[in-house]
Amino acid sequence: MAETLLKGSGITQRWGGLVAVNKVSIELERGTVHAVIGTNGAGKSTLINILSGEFPPTEGKIELLGKEATNWSQAKRARQGLGRSYQRNTIFPDFSVFENCRLAAQAQVQRPWVWWNDAQKCKQSVESANRALELSGLTEVKERFAGLLSHGQKRQLEIAMCLAIQPEVLLLDEPLAGMGAEETDRMLKLLDNLKAGHAILLVEHDMDAVFRIADRITVMVNGSVIASDTPDQIRVNPDVQTAYLGGH
């Protein structure tokens, strides 16, 4: 039995009368990529936001690494090992690629009261940043301003910044959005590499990519889960076919 790192049970989010997420339960295990697919407005991003602690759910419980985490702030969840990437780039364009990662890594070694030490000389965060850049294949461009990277590289940097905090769980919100075929290949290879040590939740619209990499797929429609199974089972699931894949 694989180790469950993040567990959400009965997660519900209501915005006034709208039920954005309806009693969703999800488990992320180390060594697996768990994809969440669904049409626009199905509640995938809301689910990621709730799991990462952007805002608390109306109802439901979240456990991170076996600990009750429903009331933890987003920052605390991140420090405990939950990394997330955003659908839109949230990099720091004026910083170098390296400094983007180093600053993220600094969250693991916060010493704000040591005001006289140069942050650039903080060994721990420099090492974490270099490791994250190495893993995500950005070492060659680490000196460049992040704002000058290509779109694909910016998406890679988004992931690298997640990795810099040395997370065990990764929540990735459409990491492939807007990427070309070659860039997609590179990103999937990266995710495949990361899989062994991490539990990965992948929200993605690119179906080919999802079926290539996911070990488990959860399908959401209008805030509810209609199926959660292996890719092969999802492919032949009649509910999914009518609701989402349109009979392909």
Partner: peptide
Amino acid sequence: ILLRSHFGRVLAGIRINEQRMRASGFST
């Protein structure tokens, strides 16, 4: 000196994107 320290770098991060800083693990 303060602005190039750990503390100062976090302030710079907050200026550019506070949400990302929280997601990285900083209580801003």
